[in-house]
């Protein structure tokens, strides 16, 4: 019994550690930091960006969503202004072609943008 409990605690601690490490890495060595440090125009996910203007590159998803976004104006090379990435559960608001559009996390993580 005691062995089992110890084991559990060990696994739990490992999990916590992994998660903390992951968060730390994302914070320090994330794409954004990379961008800020080197001014390198890399392609990043929309969920990882901060406030600012970006260029839409592409979207990796199924057809229905792709067409839906196409008719909203997501064409390669379009300017995307990220207004608010502080929404509940990673939902973000962007401005594209003079329209403010709300996207949820599931959509935003499939959109790739490039820093101008």
């Amino acid at each position: 019994m005691s062995f089992n409990l110890k084991n559990y605690i060990k696994i739990l601690r490992q999990r916590c550690y992994k998660r903390l490490l992951f968060l730390y890495l994302r914070k320090v060595k994330g794409f954004n930091k990379c961008l800020q440090c080197t001014n390198h125009s890399a392609i990043i996910k929309l969920t990882d960006v901060q406030f600012g203007t970006y260029e839409f590159v592409m979207i990796c998803c199924d057809d229905t969503l792709e067409y839906k976004l196409l008719e909203m104006g997501f064409v390669t090379g379009t300017e995307v202004l990220v207004i608010n990435n502080n929404g509940l559960g990673g939902n973000i608001i962007i401005k594209i072609r003079e329209t403010r559009i709300a996207l949820n996390y599931n959509v935003a993580k499939r959109i790739l943008v490039k820093k101008i």
């Binding site: 969503l65 839906k68 909203m72 403010r100 709300a102 599931n106």
Partner: peptide
């Protein structure tokens, strides 16, 4: 299935 939520504000 993942939900898409796209809405013009």
């Amino acid at each position: 299935y993942y939900s898409h939520f796209i809405m013009e504000l």
